Simulated assay, not measured.
Amino acid sequence: MKSGSSIKFKLPPKGMLSPNGADDPLKYYYVPLVSRLFISRIHITLRLLNDLSFDKSLEIGYGSGVLLPTLSKVSNQVYGVDIGSDPEFVARQLKALGCKPTLSTGVADQLLFEDNYFDLVVAVSVLEHIKDIEPFLTEIHRVIKPGGFLLVGMPAVNSFMEKLFAAIGFSGISNHHVTSPETMHQAANKLFMLKNMAWMPGFLPLNFYLYKSFLFQK
């Protein structure tokens, strides 16, 4: 297991990664002003890990792989599963960044891993797309080792967020974001213990958040 070190997201240089499909948010990481929101949500999520380090980590919904190089800094082995991305294509691009994850195609409620396999599972801006959240969380719980962690980041699901997404060119977000952080949290409490939580912007009361992050422990 790697020694503990603070984890901080580093955005790959523009052009090093390619988007996977029309819904891939990769381009927003490089749009002025909008990029600050997208990068900040990852910063507040990763900050919950503090100085933790891991042997095996899994990212669910890795997309274009933008987060995987950062996870590899605190994990001996990094895995990723995504329903739509091309694992070989993404792996080739990440290799140029010095990251060599084990990637596969699949869904989070049918993970092809042994029980108690991972020290950490990460799902950033993924679980809001899942309407029936409990089977997904149950399967994630199965592959996490006792004492291991689940790191989740999710946007608020409400009319204000729908207008905000429309303002940056992503209309009809309510058709994609179907589960709120509160619903996920309630379901996760049946399986995990909440260790820490953060929200963005942090200077506002929790009820006015745009993005919320959770660290759970099995």
Rank of each mutant, 00 (worst) to 15 (best):
156 A>H: 04
57 S>F: 04
126 V>I: 12
143 V>T: 11
139 E>W: 08
142 R>H: 05
15 G>P: 08
46 L>D: 03
34 V>N: 01
151 L>F: 00
138 T>L: 13
74 V>W: 04
157 V>E: 05
143 V>P: 12
68 L>P: 10
127 L>R: 01
155 P>V: 07
88 E>A: 13
36 R>D: 10
94 L>D: 02
158 N>C: 09
92 R>M: 09
152 V>P: 03
126 V>D: 01
137 L>K: 06
138 T>R: 14
80 G>H: 01
114 E>V: 00
114 E>C: 05
157 V>A: 06
144 I>Q: 07
101 P>W: 04
42 I>F: 12
104 S>E: 13
76 N>F: 07
68 L>R: 08
132 D>I: 02
117 Y>D: 12
132 D>N: 15
123 A>D: 06
158 N>M: 09
94 L>H: 01
139 E>V: 03
48 L>R: 06
122 V>Q: 04
39 I>L: 10
45 T>K: 04
132 D>Q: 09
31 V>W: 06
142 R>E: 06
42 I>G: 00
32 P>H: 04
53 S>H: 09
64 S>V: 00
17 L>H: 03
106 G>P: 03
136 F>Y: 15
38 F>S: 10
31 V>E: 14
134 E>H: 12
140 I>F: 01
28 Y>H: 12
144 I>F: 04
82 D>E: 00
56 K>C: 11
84 G>M: 13
83 I>S: 14
25 P>H: 02
71 L>Q: 08
21 G>E: 01
86 D>K: 08
